[in-house]
Computed example of a mutant assay.
Amino acid sequence: MSHTAHIPSHRKPRQRASKSALRAGVAGGFLSTIAVAGAAGPAQAEPVTQTIEMPTIASNFSAAAAASAQATQQLALDIEKQADQDAAAEKAAKDAKKAHAEAVRKDEAKKKAEAAEKKAKAEAEAKERAERASRSTERTTLSASTGSSGSSSSGSSASAPSSSSSNVSGSAASIVAFAKAQVGDAYVSGGTGPNAWDCSGLVQAAYRTAGIDLPRVSQAQSTAGTQVSLDNLQPGDILYWGGAGSAYHVAIYVGGGQFVGAQNSSTGTVQRSMDYDRPTGAVRVL
């Protein structure tokens, strides 16, 4: 009997070795297969490698998203800009329409005013013609009356043209009558008649009907006679505004608290109450 016969599993290590070798062989073969597959793998997996490019897809997607957002923002800005332009155009159209309506209204108002002014001017001219005709008749009557009574104050009375001077006689009556006959005539600086006067030209012409020659200017006329109080006036007295000797305006007192004077270019020759423009003083020549 061998000295190793008592070892029951003397052959097992060999079996394990065989199994290990087999396993090693199998493993080696498997690994070889993998190696072979690995070697052949790139040629077979090339399409997969070409389609899977994640970083490139992500980058392109981000760029597309940014471009889309920018385009959307630009579109919104364009829409807002267009809306503003439309609103501005609509407002401009409304303003233009309103301005046109206002221009039409003003034009119509201007035409109406011009028509009214033209009508008033025509009426004033007609009235002035009638007044001039009346004054001409009155002057003719006055000249005849003055010629028959003379220029002296002999006590004969001349009829006055109005109740305010109905008690005036002689030279004063002719002065008052002449002054009143010029009411409505124009005022012209330096005017001495027959249809346009300045203040001293009218006074000088009125006194000339009574045979009295007065100085031409108001300053000298304000000292041409005796100074009298405004509370003691008589028809025919000369009223003045400003100082005696430096008066800037004169007129003729016609009785009843009224005067006749060539006032200014706006009013012409008028008969007014002394309360209209209170004179400074008065002088009596008669």
Rank of each mutant, 00 (worst) to 15 (best):
A83I: 01
L75K: 13
T269Y: 03
F259S: 02
V188G: 05
Q70W: 05
I79T: 12
A69V: 11
S218R: 04
G184E: 00
S159I: 07
S152V: 08
S246I: 03
A116D: 13
P8G: 01
A103C: 05
R208T: 04
R208C: 00
V254Q: 04
I7Q: 06
S265C: 07
Y240V: 05
S266V: 06
V36I: 13
T280Q: 08
R105S: 09
S156L: 04
V183W: 08
A122P: 01
V188R: 13
A113M: 12
K106C: 01
N60I: 13
I52N: 06
A88W: 03
T267M: 11
V228R: 03
A115D: 10
E46V: 07
L214Q: 02
A124H: 00
G211Y: 09
A262T: 03
A88F: 04
A65G: 02
D95L: 14
S166P: 01
K111Q: 15
L75Y: 13
L214Y: 04
R132Q: 05
Q221A: 04
E46T: 13
I252S: 03
R284N: 08
S152H: 06
G155I: 04
I175A: 00
P55T: 08
M54V: 15
A181L: 11
Q44R: 10
Q234G: 03
S151P: 02
